[in-house]
Nucleic acid binder design. Sequence first.
DNA 1: GTCGAATGTCTAGCGCTGCTAGGATTTCGT
DNA 2: ACGAAATCCTAGCAGCGCTAGACATTCGAC
Lengths: 190, 190
Amino acid sequence: MAIKERRARERAEREQLIVRAARELAEAEGWDAVTTRRLAERIEYSQPVLYSHFSGKDAIVAAVAVEGCAELAALLRAAAADVTDPREAFAAVARAYLAFAEANPALYDAIFTLPSTLPFGTPEAPAPLHAAFAAIAEPAARSAKAAGHDPGGYTELAWSALHGMVTLARNGRLRPDLDQPRIDAFTAVF
Amino acid sequence: MAIKERRARERAEREQLIVRAARELAEAEGWDAVTTRRLAERIEYSQPVLYSHFSGKDAIVAAVAVEGCAELAALLRAAAADVTDPREAFAAVARAYLAFAEANPALYDAIFTLPSTLPFGTPEAPAPLHAAFAAIAEPAARSAKAAGHDPGGYTELAWSALHGMVTLARNGRLRPDLDQPRIDAFTAVF
DNA sequence: GTCGAATGTCTAGCGCTGCTAGGATTTCGT
DNA sequence: ACGAAATCCTAGCAGCGCTAGACATTCGAC
């Protein structure tokens, strides 16, 4: 019985080892550099071992994304925790979101940009996905209401603006000297 | 001399054939399906012929993107052509932009989403790139000014919101039932 | 028309990718 | 110690972007 538990523990540790290796390699060199061979080497197993834990490379990326969602949710909640004004709270959430994306580009891509097998927006989605979305949507909705707007469209528009800023800036399509004016415009609007 | 011209003409036609094949295949099946083998088969040449026209697959995608920029620019200019009110003109541009993205997902990705070798935002960028960006930025700036905002940050924020809406919606991260409220919110803000 | 040079196109193959089949090794229970 | 179960591995598949050098075609000169 103790053997079964040790085995399960080792298995879980190895799974986490794979997810961590993928994440670190992606942040260091981009997702293109995350190959099954490099992951296998990094965890000191052979390639097929990856497949005893995950259905494929996509599933590894999805696991990294789920981990990232949990962290993002926690970060956004913390950003808004001591702010009572809804608009100020959402401004704080927005700044935290942008900072997260800047600090964790590969994680951000895994969650929001890369093709994904994760069931976003469905009831079956893992809890961290719900948590991350709620951590954006709830402060956004409160801010919209405080400004007299209908929260539905505004919430999604605000998130779209954040996401657009992240992705266009990263692709070199936005002017770096307009970073602050852009964020100021964002907080003025939303 | 006439032989030289015929050769140049044939070469240009073949180059255009490659770009068209890539574009059609991408729109039909996504960029993942655009492989050098499939392109070569489709234009009825062997693979290495692609490399006598383009430095690599990236360059083919870039050529598609440049073509798409020209079309987008023309479309956006046409959308705003008969609208005198700056805010209405930009609303029309926004709708045209969203419609373009929806009608041409692969083209949109080639321009705005995929890693690119194109020198966006530099003086050396091909004219269609400048034209497409100007066709977004100029109406946006006029709309911002008409509303009493500083155009710099607002212009880029507006574009970020559009781009965010396109990409998040495509990835299934936005609610389809909020499509219209989201666009209404956009035009109310920008 | 013939021939050689120039130009263009091809086959074959490289290194790399994600993934799998089946064999080899290790662990566990008796 | 032995056999079964679990785990891990090697080797290899099909596919990817790209390249070297061989082969084929076209062109210009005679």
